[in-house]
């Protein structure tokens, strides 16, 4: 079942469905991502936004529709799925650095073993990227010696070093202490300004406003609303979106006393 086709130079998604048992998790999704576009997915927990990213990286099978990258179908059963995944970088909420490898080895593992690149060349790039996120001096450290924010920046560098065509961020600041959130978001803003294609799941609404070209609001596995950050945050069209945005507002508690 093909729902919508979003044409673009680089990334094409077609509508897809994803269900656990009889429970439809994602339904009637019709989305096209253009090169250089930054898409932010928002919505209440359980709305399917993380699942969507996982489907795009073929970490979960879909039961209907299709997902395409440059015309190539993304499917866990696809023979060349490992090759396709190289073009899709993903950063997880829990960092998922490999604890038995140093920061540098974490970054170099896939470029060397998967892409068979030369060590010197890959290392040069890795060091340049680490420098850029301010972690060059941590190259020989092990993940457990880093703070959460540092780990997450390393995870971003690890994804970048594979030269992906699109980057997926799955609630990457949700596990971080507030003062570390900023350092990770700054890296992402920097990437956006370089013209990277990104899809971001986040609960940081201020950040979403700043980074997004387009905001997509998911609810109950469906795209309920989409638009520019201004449209969505200032003038949400649906009640569901208004209600959702309202949960981020706090009203003066003390005025209600008495």
């Amino acid at each position: 079942m093909e729902v919508i086709f979003l044409g673009t130079d680089i990334v094409i998604y077609r509508t897809f469905e994803k269900s656990y048992d009889d429970n439809l998790i994602l339904d009637d999704i019709d989305l096209e991502v253009h090169q250089g576009e930054v898409i932010v997915l928002v919505g209440p927990s359980g709305c399917g936004k993380s699942t969507m990213l996982r489907c795009i990286n073929a970490l979960e099978p879909i039961q209907g529709g299709e997902i395409k990258l440059n015309g190539e179908k993304i499917d866990p059963k696809n023979k060349n799925i490992a090759e396709l995944r190289q073009k899709i970088g993903m950063v997880f909420q829990s960092y998922e650095l490999f604890p038995h490898l140093t920061v540098l080895d974490n970054i170099l593992l896939a470029p060397m073993k998967v892409q068979k690149r030369k060590k010197e060349e890959a290392e040069k790039e890795a060091m340049a990227l680490l420098e850029r996120v301010g972690l060059a001096e941590k190259a020989k450290s092990y993940p457990r010696q880093l703070s959460g924010g540092q780990k997450q920046r390393v995870a971003i560098v690890r994804a970048l070093c594979m030269h992906p065509e699109i980057l997926l961020f799955d609630e990457v600041t949700a596990a971080l202490d507030p003062e570390m959130v900023r350092e990770v978001l700054d890296v992402m803003l920097d990437l956006a300004s370089q013209g990277r294609t990104m899809m971001i799941v986040t609960h940081e609404m201020q950040f979403a406003k700043a980074v997004a070209d387009r905001v997509i609001f998911l609810n109950g596995g469906k795209i309920v609303e989409e638009g520019t950050p201004e449209e969505f945050f200032e003038h949400p069209k649906t009640d569901r979106a208004k209600q959702f945005l309202n949960t981020f507002e706090f009203h003066e508690a003390k005025t209600h006393v008495k």
């Binding site: 970490l59 490992a82 995944r85 190289q86 993903m90 997880f92 490999f98 038995h100 896939a110 073993k113």
Partner: peptide, 28 residues
Amino acid sequence: PIQTESAYSLGMNRCQTMRYIILPQAMS
């Protein structure tokens, strides 16, 4: 399992994931 997914998302296949990610950690 998310360690495996993380390796997959870097484009590693099952064999590479086993050899470079799972086994070294599981062994220790």
